[in-house]
Every structure is written in structure tokens, then in C-alpha cells.
Design a protein around this nucleic acid. Sequence first.
DNA 1: CTGTTAGCGCCTTCAA
DNA 2: TTGAAGGCGCTAACAG
Lengths: 338, 338
Amino acid sequence: MAGVSVPTASRSLRDDPQITLATRVAVRWAADRLGYVPNAAARNLANRSSKTLGLMVPDVTDPVHGQIVSGFEREVTRHGYVMLMSNSRYDADAERRGLSTLIGNQVEGIAIFGGVMDLAAIHAFAEGTRLAFIGPENLEAALKGFGDQNTITVDDASGVAQVVEQTAALGYRRFGYVSGPTIASCVRRRNACVAAVAAFGLERLRVYEFEDIPIDRLCHRIIRDGRDIVLCFDDQRALRLLGALHDAGIKVPEQLGVVGFDDIPFAGISNPSLSTVAVSYEEMGRLACEMLLDQVTSGDTTSPAATIEGRVVLRGTTANRTRKVRTDAPATVKEAAS
Amino acid sequence: MAGVSVPTASRSLRDDPQITLATRVAVRWAADRLGYVPNAAARNLANRSSKTLGLMVPDVTDPVHGQIVSGFEREVTRHGYVMLMSNSRYDADAERRGLSTLIGNQVEGIAIFGGVMDLAAIHAFAEGTRLAFIGPENLEAALKGFGDQNTITVDDASGVAQVVEQTAALGYRRFGYVSGPTIASCVRRRNACVAAVAAFGLERLRVYEFEDIPIDRLCHRIIRDGRDIVLCFDDQRALRLLGALHDAGIKVPEQLGVVGFDDIPFAGISNPSLSTVAVSYEEMGRLACEMLLDQVTSGDTTSPAATIEGRVVLRGTTANRTRKVRTDAPATVKEAAS
DNA sequence: CTGTTAGCGCCTTCAA
DNA sequence: TTGAAGGCGCTAACAG
């Protein structure tokens, strides 16, 4: 339609400076008059590059995962790439299939969040594919042998330490930690909590397993143990706990302070609103994409670990206790081996 | 490696019955010993079919959108297809770019949720591409001319009518509706509310604009107007309202009943837990995929409208007012957000 | 500056 | 039952 050969048209549409501006314009004009859109499959085949990045998450429905997807997708498209997403629903088989689909689609790199496959299996499976692990949750043992290369992790230790410092400054003294599933970040947060409490010379931390105990009994046990504040593994559990505390007639933050982790959207509108550690998961998603793209341009297949800091946000579930004189605080504190 | 020609290998891997079982096995064996995965781009080019479906959402971060993505993705992969997702962040430009990226990638169909482009623009832009509109939010005017073909919509009217019926049965009499943005579903819900209240012979509905009034004044106005229950456009607003009501010292459900719409995961763990209309957005996503795939197989480019029903879930923000005895025990049934 | 030639990896005729 | 030849739409080399 523009009266030029196919390669010329191709070059024109890619704004090749070697082509006269006149013909470039002519081609472009013809192109969008015809509603022409280049065939990505053919282009990718010829270029041996798919301009595609893969992202695996276990549950898009979860706001944290959603934020990661959002940040990843934004960065991907910003670079003219396309995102292929696989949602495993925490199913190992689905995860395996997803991985091989991504590989079959010639993705130039895959970012993996959460997930249930172990690292060794993934490495074996994705031989030669560039990888980025977002907050890998395999326990230390599984991590052995891969170090923390190609990982993007939340700095749990610093986040927790900040919370302990700031809430201790508010007058909280007897800390508890409400544990989540047995995954790396939970263990890191618990350990950080133990360390921080010790560092501030506070009474030893008590740990509670959220998933093991009926939630109403958990509430009573926390109070019976004389805790005046509990840090929870994440906001989800903190919010659930908040509901149970309310039902049990335990006043937050008067009797017990509660702190979450993540700052999911609903942390701000719960009631009382939840104090927590805000983490920019969008930024994590962005970093994962950046890591992958760096590997693509450098031709390398490894990247140094990246870390992202949390920020303490104190809201309604913690209060300043230094002014008030509390008298109803339980005095009995048994030294028990835990 | 299996000692056969390329076409034979190709046929074997696709389980062509014309190939001897023996050679098929041999090829397959060789294939996964070599870690061979067929190149999707080349295959798609040869087949003139991308086995790819596109999905456009404005905000993956939102739990409702996340559920749609989840349901869509599941169905897509179940059919051996791949999903390309575009997240517009409610930006018209991003949406346009996303659309053309999808088209360039030869998607066989596109499901569009929410979004800011109007239908006419989309139709013009995506000429010849199969489309499915999930709960299109353009107001009636914009919808004129396209009917409701290729749409998947929540049956707002029935959901709202059920809520009114069931809460009226609990003894609620003076209804209010807390409006959301000026979009189709909000208008439908409001109208349905007006109609239902009239149908049950109740006092005329009062409508409140959530976005126009400071939320604390909204609370007081509702009480001053003598409402004993408000239905909210969606759970997000209902939860926000709940927080404000709490701050204003208004007791829910004793003084005022509150009902949301959507049943997002946090509706079940707010406090008090939120009564609402549960809608399976996963199912909506699934339906959108099905619609697109139907069009692909039928070769057609239109589908009849599909509708999805809501289900009333009464929790802690509504109570039985017919009995004089006030039971302060909430949460008869604990609903775990899964 | 532009056209010609060849090939990306796979699949589908058609022969053998 | 299998191999040989040609083409999908595009781009990278090389002419001219």
C-alpha cells in the first residue's frame, strides 16, 4: 500500500534511521489505515527473543500477591515486554505445569513468588532459564546450596526490630509473637523478635502458634501469660486475632497491643485500625522484573540479592502507655521453658 | 536422538495416532531426556493460532479483580491456553496500549473488566477481535448500540431484592442506600433497592452519596434520618462506614444494620463481621474465558449475555430485631476467609 | 537509502 | 508408517 518492499516496511515501523523520513511516514500511515499490527509470534521467532517475562504466584487473590503482580506487570510493560502469569493455587502440580508452560513460551526470565516446589526442583526444571526468587519461603535447609543469589527479600529483621523499639518506647514491655506457617519469613520474624526483645532488655518473648490453637483459646492464653503486646506474623492473622479478641471482650489497645506485618489495604480500615510494618510489595515486583531484565542485558544468569525495607506504621491497635497508670495489669508471670 | 525425522518427532509429541506407539515412546523419551520443550512462537506461527487469551483489569490489587484474574487464568490453562494480563491502573492510555499489545500478540480473544475506555472506542480499536465484557460499567447511554451481547454481569437486582427481603424479615424497616461511584452497577443496585423497598411496602428509600460527604457527617445524617439499616454499594465502602460508625459511637447492628456487596475476604473478619451479598467473581472470570473460547470454536464473534447470581450472607452487622431480647453474642457461625 | 535472499522452529500437504 | 518440501510473518544479512 505504501509501495515499498516488506523489509522496508518492517524497518520503517521500527523507526530505522536508515529509512527516509518520507517513506517512514508513508508506511506508518498505510499501516494504521490498514489497522496493521505486527505479529509478535513471527517477530519473536525471527529475533529469537520473546520479549516476554513470566511470573508465578500461588494466589492472585491475596492482596500481597496482587501488589507483586501489579509492580511486576508495570515494569514489564514499561520495557516493552509482556507478562505471562501463572497462578498455582498452592498446588505443586499446577506449579510444575505453569513453569513448563512459561518455558515453552520462551519467556526470557521467570520470577517466582512463594510457591510450593523446592528450589532444587525448580533449578533442575528451569535449567538455563533466568530466575528471580521473590521472598523465597523455603527454610534455611532448602536454601543451602543456592545462597541468596537471585532473591528479593523483605528485611524482616529490621522491620521487627523497629516495631519492638517503637512500641517499647510507647511503654509496652511483655512481648508475644503470633507465629504463622513454618516458612522462612515467619522464622526470620520470630528470631528477629527474640533478638530485639533481648537487645532492649525486655522480658523474654513468648511464641504462639496461630494455626495450632483455636483462636479464642489463643486470646485467653495470651492474656493469661500477661502479654501486653503481640506481634503477628502478618496482617491477615493480626486481623483475625483482632476479631477474636473483640469477641472475647479483650480491649485493644488498652489491654493488649497488636501489630501486624505487610500493611495490606484493610489494615487501615479495620477497627481499631491495625498497627503494622508497611512493605511495598509493588516495589518487590518491580525489583524482580529489573533483576530479570538486568540478567537479559548482561547475558549473565545470576544477580546479587536485593532487599527491601519495611516501615513501621502505628495506628489504633497500639497506644501510648507511658502516660496512663495501669493497675489492672496481671502481675503473675511464670518463668516457663518454651 | 530417537533416529527419526523432524516431522515424525513433531507428530509423536502431539500423540498423532498415525505414528507407531513404539516410536512415539522413543521420541518422548528422547525429548524429555534432552529437556526439549516445543517453541510456542514457532508453533503458533505455523498454526496461525496463538493459544492465548487476554485479560484487562484496572487494578489487580483489588481482591475482586484478583478473583476474576484467578478464575480466568484457571480456565484458560485448563484449556491449554495461556493468559496475557494487562493492568491499566485506571489509566486510559495504559488501557489503550495494553489493548494493542494484546492484539499484537495475536490473542484469540480479550476479556475486559471495568476499565475506563468507552465501549465504542474499544470496538473500534479491537476490530475483529473476540471480546467479552465483564460487568461493564459504562452507563446505560454508553451501552446503547451494543446491547448486552458479550457481557457477563452480576444480577444486582436479584441480590439487592434478596437482601431487602431477608433483612425486612429480621425486622428492619427504614432503608438507606449508600451509593458508590457513578457506574452502571451502582445505579442498578440503587434502582433495585428503590424497587424492592417499594415492593415490600416499606418506607421510601433514602440515598446517600458516599464520595460526596465527609464520612463522619454521613454517619450522623443516616441516624438523624432515622434509618435502621443501610445497604452499601460494595464491601469496601461498607467497611469504611463501619469504622466511621464505630468512631461516632453508633452501635452496629443495634442502632443500625449495615450490608455490603461482593463478600471480599475481609468482610468475614471485620468486626462486627459484615453481612453482604456474596458474588463468585472467580466464576465470572471463568465464564468470560468460556465465552471467548466458545466464540473461538464456533467461529462466531458474539455471545449471548451471561448473568451470575449473588447469595445473601448475613453476619454480624445485621441482627434479628423481631425478638425483644437482645442477645449480645455475635458470630454464631464463624466464616473463615479462604 | 532500498530491495533480494535466506532462515527462525514448527506444521501441513504430498509421496514413498 | 514415515520422510521431503514448502510456508507461516518477520528480520538480519547482503547486495545494489
